[in-house]
């Protein structure tokens, strides 16, 4: 056999260990992709998700009265949540920068109290960057007693920086049961 073998075996083991570090780095990279994706979506509007925290109204906010944007409202209740959920207005014409109030009505149709979480989505995705919510029922979980009806408000404005080619923005909520979300 070859005389240099012990040295070579050591070298092989060292290189293999280094490559294991590469694998480790790739695993870390994978884990970091989850938050990275979230941040990337927030910055680019890649998946149309809006902020889940309220925005503070800036003093400098100006209403652009020369422009109209149509905002449509819709909602879905996902299977497993015994609620009815409908927007009280199907659409609104707004000026960018104007603070508006829209409401949805929710009703628990069962005899059991339930907790739900509304997940907002805006289309087109790019518009999600410019759709600012000051107050929204989707910021917290909502609970409804048996048979209870509740009006759910969302106070928002469309940023005047909304790209000029966007005239229609749709806000949609998917209401999930948090019971099923944690089972």
């Amino acid at each position: 056999m070859l005389s240099a073998q012990p040295n070579r075996n050591d070298a092989n083991r060292r290189l293999a260990l280094k490559l294991l570090w590469v694998v480790g780095a790739a695993i870390l990279f994978t884990l970091s992709l989850v938050p990275l994706y979230r941040v990337f979506c927030q910055v680019t509007g890649l998946n149309g998700k809006t902020d889940v925290r309220p925005v503070a109204v800036q003093k400098s906010l100006k209403v652009d009265e020369s422009r109209w944007v149509t905002v449509e409202f819709t909602g879905n209740v996902m299977p497993g949540l015994g609620w009815n959920f409908t927007p009280n207005q199907s659409s609104m014409r707004v000026h960018p920068g104007q603070i508006e109030l829209a409401t949805y009505e929710a009703r628990n149709n069962t005899n059991q109290a339930a907790v739900g979480q509304a997940v907002p989505s805006v289309s087109p995705g790019q518009a999600s960057l410019y759709f600012k919510k000051i107050e929204c029922f989707c910021f917290q979980r909502q609970s409804l007693k048996p048979g209870e009806r509740k009006e759910m408000p969302v106070r928002f404005y469309v940023s005047p920086e909304l790209p000029a080619d966007i005239q229609n923005v749709t806000l949609s909520y998917a209401f999930y049961s948090t019971a099923s979300a944690t089972n």
Binding site: L33, N47, M78, A181, T182
Partner: peptide, 19 residues
């Protein structure tokens, strides 16, 4: 009970496709 790919818990099914 995690929600990586479920919108209910703040996840996104499309994230799975990216990964």
């Amino acid at each position: 009970g995690t929600h990586f790919f479920n919108a209910a818990g703040g996840g996104d099914p499309i994230l799975f496709q990216h990964l």
